[in-house]
């Protein structure tokens, strides 16, 4: 697989997830926070007397169903949107949900927060990438290590994770509800998509997973406590992230060892360094194949 394959994979992300059924499932995570599944990437919803805060907005065409699910949780205005990264399955509904989420009392527009690089990627797409409508762009970017705000009675921390899944990743911690929304840094049933074309790297991803572990605190015997909303897949806690961090670290170490032995990309792929994880994270039809995962690590590490 040549280098452009990864970029093509990025472009294919939306069609891959678009094929999923668009029925929205809502689960209460804990405290003021809920998670919506089925609209592309997972959408995290914080509600309270001041309105609604969303982490990610799913696919554009899922917006009406997502809004209907949000309205079952709160009649309040959508006041904030925080994008965990640039991909369209997490940002496609920005404009639509901001528009549909406005109320006569709070006509908006809502603040759409993202790391600066998300804005750069959207406003200046790479050659061959589709343009992103300006209405979907963030209107409140940050370029510091973190940003915080206070909404619905709790502190909300937005932390930038450099060069991980992409170069514009943010994780969002709801301190009172004790919930972390982490975007595609973590997907419990899938290999990570290390989007090299958009500034991702395996070591940045591992650093991001370790940052999640640093923030999360289990309630008792490594269970519960801080709950984690992944970019795709089921609700998790710290122990689930540990398994994932270990997997990425171990496969990274194996690829690094093969590179030190002077193996070429084809030889590394032939060695199948992820083969004991493939049945778990690269089931038939999975978006990121074992080969694509290994290739992204190799290209991320190869000097």
């Amino acid at each position: 697989m040549k280098w452009p394959t990864i970029a093509v994979a990025a472009a294919l992300l939306v069609p891959a997830i678009r094929a999923q059924p668009a029925d929205i499932e809502t689960l209460h995570v804990q405290g003021n926070v809920f998670a919506l599944f089925g609209g592309g990437g997972n959408v995290t919803v914080q509600t309270g007397p001041e309105g609604v805060l969303l982490v990610d907005t799913g696919l554009a065409d899922a917006a009406p169903k997502l809004m209907a699910a949000i309205r079952k949780l709160s009649p309040g205005a959508v006041r904030y949107v925080i994008n965990t990264h640039v991909h369209a399955d997490h940002t496609g509904g920005n404009a639509a949900l901001v528009k549909m989420g406005a109320t006569p009392e709070m006509p908006g527009p809502a603040r759409v927060i993202a790391y600066l690089n998300v804005m750069d990627r959207m406003s200046t797409p790479a050659p061959g990438e589709p343009a992103v409508p300006a209405a979907n762009w963030p209107n409140d970017t940050y370029s510091t290590p973190y940003k915080d705000l206070f909404f619905n009675g709790e502190a909300v921390f937005v932390t930038h994770i450099p060069n991980a899944h992409t170069d514009g990743d943010s994780i969002v911690f709801f301190r009172k509800s004790d919930v972390l929304a982490v975007g595609d840094l973590f997907m419990p049933d899938l290999y990570p998509f290390i989007d090299l074309a958009h500034g991702g790297s395996v070591n940045g991803l591992i650093a991001g997973l370790n940052k999640i572990l640093e923030i999360a605190v289990p309630a008792k015997y490594q269970e519960g406590g801080t709950m984690i909303v992944p970019g795709h897949g089921r609700l998790c806690d710290e122990a689930d992230v540990v398994e994932y961090r270990d997997m990425v670290t171990i496969v990274r170490d194996r690829v690094q060892d093969l590179i030190k032995q002077g193996k070429t990309l084809d030889q590394v792929k032939a060695a199948k360094p992820s083969r004991d994880y493939d049945t778990q994270y690269a089931a038939q039809g999975a978006f990121i194949s074992a080969d694509a995962f290994v290739e992204s690590i190799y290209k991320s590490l190869k000097p």
Binding site: E25, L27, A35, Y221, E223, R234, L235, C236, D237
Partner: peptide, 21 residues
């Protein structure tokens, strides 16, 4: 470790629900 085994016919949770030990 404590476990509850339900015998009241309730369904299992959604696939998106958290897993526990």
């Amino acid at each position: 470790s404590e476990r509850t085994i339900y015998l009241d016919g309730r369904p299992h949770p959604s696939a998106n629900a958290p897993h526990t030990w």
